[in-house]
Every structure is written in structure tokens, then in C-alpha cells.
Design a protein around this nucleic acid. Structure first.
Lengths: 216, 216
DNA sequence: CTGGCGTGTCAACGAGTGTTGGCCTACATT
DNA sequence: AATGTAGGCCAACACTCGTTGACACGCCAG
């Protein structure tokens, strides 16, 4: 699901020639020969994620995305229908959460925190998702579904009482999301200055308690 | 001490402190007959906070604010200079954090959580601040200053090691802000369904630990 | 060669935005 | 009564946005 390297440091007028050479290599799931459009499509998505992550939904303009991808704005429309469609495609994400059942029960918290930390810094998509989620109703809906389909099940796998799963998942989300917002979105200086180890050591026990401790 | 309300062009945003209680025109604090502008000014600010809180910075249009306040858009400009000035005035906030030094040391956490919870639901300003903080660079800067000038000092008053104040304040902020984002901004269903008591009981100990526990 | 099709550009439209300047009205002061 | 002024409205400007339709180039099949 990843983009490929784009050559252009200088954005010459030769966008066409660049696309020529950069015949995409990976279609993976499909027997068809790789279309030239695959690479532009990937470039658009990469630019879109970047813009959504740094600007939010409204300020991330299709024109800016197109400029970053070195193509015409109308191409974005043709590929993704409209801005909403572009966001839907750009915010598709798999958190790749670890199987908490196979790690020692008392390490689930630290494990989860560490995973999110690495994920957040390795993939712009997560940042884009949060920024747009706060900006835009459709983005919030997307966050809901990620929470429901990916976070809640993992919490359920280690939570003693199934009835408490939603509450505990919400608590875990509140802490992890809160650190992400403070550190990556608002960039509160002290939060941004923390090392991974510090964060894991402080937040790990909190998440662990939310996951498995009985009663409040 | 208070500057007289003279709405000129490009007027700087002045203190909106009076706006808290001064909903109507009869602010009997001085002998002058109440200007009509006092009430409109308050109406604009109220509408602005509402819009910023529910729509974020970019989607909250001056025209919409004006419509809510039942006046002409150009009035907003005359009173606050420009949109940025309007936000600056509308996001002026005093968290009114409690003196943690006068409460039992082990209740600081729950006390703080409860305070924020009530504050968040009793005043649209806080919501507006967070929504815009995530949307807009200037809003983020405003959050920084509130964190630095209001949250950090209170944390400092109960934190054993002065050197750890920024870190601990950031941790506290991450948890409280995370719950606020989950509950009021994203409205994750399980987070929105929690009662105040549940939240206090779960988050209280976390915040308490961030405030005073030694080591991670 | 020819014709379609995929890929891409160009120029424009309509809507909505922040912002500005001119004009009007009520009223307090002279 | 005359008038200055604060408070307010209206119409417009300049701009940006998402979006659209017409046109241009390069490729393959017939």
C-alpha cells in the first residue's frame, strides 16, 4: 500500500516524461500489466496524506495536492471523484495492532504505547486521520470506524469483562490520542521533547490499568 | 482602567473579560448609560465561540457568526478588526484552576479532572480553543500559552521536583486533553456515554500519578 | 493508416470567503 | 433646531475554492 520513489527534485515542465520513466512496479494483487496511472495515483495519495496531516481538511486544497504531485487539479478529480473521495482513499489505514494475547499480560500497556508511537512517526496517514477527524465530520466518522474495527477488538482480547470493553477501549484511546494530539498536532513543547522511552514508561502503566485493572 | 469601547477600523482585540457575565446590556458597573454596542459585542463573541467550537477555524465563517448574532458581517470587522482578532477575543479564557495546595495531596488528581469536566461543559470557550488549536497555527499558539501560563503553574505547586514540572504538566495535559478530544470533539460513542463519576474515577488516579508519583 | 482509449492539460464557471467603503438613522450635546 | 457621532446596513471587491468540459498527445489494436 505504499508509494514509490519519485525522481523529481526539480519540477520541470516535463511531468509527462517523468511519468514515462517511472513505470510503476507493484500491482501485486492484480495480474494486469501496471498502468502508468498507478504511479501518479500513488503520488497523489502521498501528497494528499501530507497535506491533510499538516493542514487539516479544509486548508488542504486539491490544488495544493495536485501541485505537490506535479499534475493538474482535474486529475485528482478524475481519480478520486471529489475531495471527500480523496480523503477516504488517503485515510485508509491499518493500525497493525499487535496480538496482545501473545505478550505477557502485564506488558500489554507498554507494548501498545510503543506500537502507536512508532506507527505515528512512520506513517503520515495516522496524523492525517487525526487532524481531519478533528476538523471534519466525515473525518470523525472515519476515526470512529477505526476505533470500532481495530482498537476495540484488541482491547476485547485482553479485557476480563466483555461488557466493559467499550469503556476501557475509550479510556485507552483517550490517553494515546491525547498524547498524539499534544505531541504531533499541537506540538506542546514539553510533550514534543519527550523521548520514546519516557512516554512508554509513563503511559504504559496507565494504559495497562485501563486495559486490565478491576474497578476504577 | 478599562479602555472605552471605540470600534475603529483595525481595532485591536481588547479584553473580553466582561463578556463572561455581561450577556445583556445592563452592565451597571459604571454610571454611563449602557451602549448598545456592549450587548452586540457580547452577542458576537457568544456566537463566535459557538461557531469556533462546533466548526473549527476555517469553517466558522464571519458571515455565520454575524447571522447568529443578528447583525451585519461588517460589524464583526469593525469590532474585532479581522477574523484572527475575533478568534483572539473569543478564545480568551481563564481556566479558573483550583488551588491544589489547599486540597488533600492525594485528591489533587480527581479534583483537577472534575474541574475540567465541569469547565468543559459549562463554557463553550474551552471547546472552541481546542477545536481551533488543532485546526489553526495561531490557535495552537494560543493553547501553548494557556498551557504555559495556567496549567504549568498549578502543576508546579504540587510537584516535588521543579525540574520535572514541564514533563508532568504535559502528561496531565495529554490525558485531560485526550479525554476532551475523544468526548467533545470526536464524540467517540463510548467516551461520550461516560458519566462524570466514571471519568473522575478512572482519570483521577492517572492524573494523580502524573502529578506526584516518583519516577515513571 | 486509422480510430479508439488512456493520460494529461487548459481555461473557465459558480459559489463562498474575508474584507472594504459608502450611506443611513437615532440620539446626545450644543 | 442644528449637528456630530456612534451604531448599523448594503453592495461590492478581490480572491480562492471545488469542480467541469473541451481539447491535445501517445499508444495499441484493427
Amino acid at each position: 500500500m505504499e508509494d514509490e520513489a519519485k525522481p523529481g527534485p526539480a519540477r520541470e515542465a516535463d511531468a509527462g516524461a517523468a511519468a514515462h520513466l517511472a513505470v510503476s512496479a507493484q500491482v501485486a494483487t492484480d495480474g494486469r500489466p501496471p498502468r502508468r496511472s498507478d504511479s501518479t495515483r500513488a503520488a497523489i495519495l502521498r501528497a494528499a496524506r501530507e497535506r491533510f496531516a499538516s493542514d487539516g481538511y479544509e486548508r488542504a486544497t486539491i490544488r495544493a495536492v495536485a501541485r505537490d504531485a506535479a499534475i493538474d487539479p482535474s486529475m485528482v478529480m478524475r481519480y478520486f471523484g471529489n475531495k471527500e473521495g480523496l480523503f477516504a482513499a488517503a485515510s485508509e489505514i491499518d493500525l497493525r495492532l499487535p496480538e496482545l494475547t501473545v505478550v505477557p499480560a502485564d506488558e500489554a500497556g507498554t507494548r501498545l504505547v510503543r506500537h502507536f508511537l512508532e506507527r505515528w512517526e512512520g506513517d503520515e496517514t495516522l496524523n492525517a486521520l487525526v487532524r481531519v477527524g478533528v476538523t471534519n465530520p466525515a473525518g470523525a466518522e472515519r476515526v470512529h470506524s477505526v476505533f470500532r474495527d481495530q482498537v476495540a477488538p484488541v482491547v476485547a482480547s485482553v479485557c476480563p469483562d466483555p461488557q466493559q470493553v467499550p469503556v476501557r477501549a475509550a479510556l485507552v484511546a483517550s490517553q494515546i490520542l491525547g498524547m498524539a494530539v499534544s505531541r504531533y498536532v499541537l506540538r506542546l513543547p514539553p510533550a514534543a521533547a519527550l523521548t520514546h522511552e519516557e512516554i512508554v514508561n509513563w503511559l504504559g502503566p496507565t494504559v495497562q490499568r485501563y486495559l486490565t485493572a478491576e474497578g476504577p
